[in-house]
Simulated assay, not measured.
Amino acid sequence: MRLTLLLTAAAVALTACGQQSAQKAEGQVSGGGSARNQVWAAGSSTVFPFATRVAETVARTTGGTAAKVESLGTGGGIKLFCSGTGAGYPDIATASRAMKKSEFEACQANGVTDIVELKIGFDGIVVANAKGAPTFNLTREQIYRALAAELPQGSGFAQNTAANWSAVAPGLPNERILAYGPPPTSGTRDAFVELAMEKGAEKVPAMAALKKSNEDEFKAKSHTLRRDGAWVDAGENDNAIVQTLEKTPNAVGVFGYSFLENNMDKVKAATVEGVAPSFEAISSGEYPLSRSLYIYVKKANVGVTPGLREYVTAFVSDAAAGRGGYLQDRGLISLPQAEHDQVKAAAQALTPMAAPTK
């Protein structure tokens, strides 16, 4: 009798263990975060300091585990975010540009649906150099002519051989063209080629004509940066670019305004079309290289990943992303109040985004 009771108890225990294992596996596959005890955000190097600051604040105020925040670049973060559901993939993608149609479709194909898009503020892309180096006053056309891999010549294109900035336009410093910037996976890189390179190319008659006749080729030509050493992919860490500029005073760097804001004692920014990057010029759109910043949230993970709702709510709160909030001290340019209120409402309702058109 005793043996029978022991065998029965063992069978019950094994059954319960099996059920728990099945439940754990199911949670990993469908729920998005039950096997994790913390929020996971990955993506933009520009949004990284903001996401980290929010993680620190939420952990301090709630006593929970701080969110895990990774700087992979916008493209890398969204790719990982869209790769699947479950604990093996981030709850949040941080981005320094809007999600592309192709990325949204990849999300859908992998079961990542009901994505909540939240604009957290603005940023500007700066072209900067060391404090003691010559001052640059640039146009977007000059940026394009200095950094494009090929330039129009005759009826075709030729490799860009400009060695010094003074060869690009009279009045520019007689310094070697050497620019350190983000790699192709970065949202900063995407925004730079769209806002600086592409807009600058439109000022060149041959390129403007190409855009009318073949827009795909126009984009390919205007977005391709030099590979002869004039442009250097410096990785996703914008702070590393700032450090490089201190050691290489003849070089310029391309990075987000927040890194300029936090390193004013080390670097200075060029004007673009006569406008210097500033809080006011970026928020008004007067500064030509301004862009929006976003976070993307898996709605299905809210209520599953501990602390996710609290983290998202805190990120878009008045105390963080509002005018005068603590993220402003890190360099975030706040949204206009009416738009900020709309974002807060969307975060509360977890309203899924519509499919991007491009």
Rank of each mutant, 00 (worst) to 15 (best):
A346E: 13
H340W: 12
A338F: 10
G307C: 10
A42M: 08
A240M: 09
A66G: 00
R53K: 15
K131I: 15
I125G: 11
S155F: 10
V58M: 02
A320F: 03
L335E: 02
Y294M: 04
P356Y: 09
T46Y: 02
R323A: 14
A196L: 04
A148W: 06
A66I: 03
A208W: 13
G73A: 02
A22T: 12
T46N: 07
K101G: 03
K247S: 15
G88N: 10
V275I: 15
A93I: 01
Q159V: 13
A10S: 13
A338T: 12
S44D: 10
Y326F: 15
V69C: 02
G84L: 03
A314N: 08
V343H: 07
G63H: 00
G325M: 08
Y257Q: 02
A10N: 09
G325D: 04
A162M: 04
K212P: 05
T65N: 14
T15L: 15
G111Y: 08
A208M: 06
V272A: 06
P183F: 06
T357R: 11
T15P: 02
P306R: 10
C107D: 04
K221C: 05
F48D: 03
Y294F: 15
A35P: 04
A230F: 05
T244H: 12
A338Q: 11
V275N: 09
M207N: 08
T351M: 09
E56M: 13
S278C: 06
P306L: 14
D114I: 02
A133M: 07
K268F: 11
C17Q: 12
A196T: 05
A169F: 07
N129V: 13
E103H: 05
G156M: 06
